[in-house]
């Protein structure tokens, strides 16, 4: 989706967030990010791709990437919670389409911390977010090991 690095993407998001004075506006921005996520197909929204949280559910599906010199991670995601979906959109912007080796070591918690959203990862067992991060990282690790 992009040629910029995860760090550049993250900086853009943090800048965007800092434009807003109130949490209401930040959450509105986050929800809008979620609404702009590419939708999952019916087959992608399967039980296998579902991450159970005890509050909200997350779906995460990987999409094949055309041959690239280095393995690249491409994924889409969805959630029944608008805010969690917004957080998925944050991860998608920063990580999807990026080389696997960058994703494996990417500090997701640090990013959410900068955005003031790390509480959602702390609550991750409940909203499925931390499991999703683990799946994306596992995927990246697998793609990378295949390449070696």
């Amino acid at each position: 989706m992009t040629t910029t690095t995860p760090e550049e993407q993250a900086d853009d998001l943090v800048e965007g967030f800092e434009l807003f004075d109130t949490w209401d506006d930040r959450y509105r921005f986050l929800i809008d990010l979620g609404r702009k996520l590419p939708p999952l197909t019916e087959t992608e929204k399967s039980e296998v791709n579902r991450v159970h949280g005890c509050q909200s559910n997350v779906w995460i599906a990987t999409r094949p990437q055309p041959e690239t010199p280095e393995p690249v991670i491409n994924f889409v995601g969805d959630s029944d919670s608008s805010l969690v979906k917004g957080l998925i959109a944050v991860l998608w912007r920063v990580c999807s389409g990026q080389p696997a080796e960058k994703i494996v070591s990417y500090d997701v918690e640090g990013l959410l911390d900068r955005l003031g959203l790390s509480q959602h990862l702390t609550m991750g067992r409940r909203n499925g977010l931390d499991e999703m991060v683990k799946r994306v990282k596992a995927l990246a690790a697998k793609a990378e090991s295949r390449n070696q």
């Binding site: 209401d24 959450y27 509050q55 029944d80 919670s81 969690v84 959602h120 909203n127």
Partner: peptide, 11 residues
């Protein structure tokens, strides 16, 4: 979603 409501109420 109840989760979203919980987060907004927390604010």
């Amino acid at each position: 979603h109840p989760y979203d409501l919980g987060v907004i109420l927390d604010q």
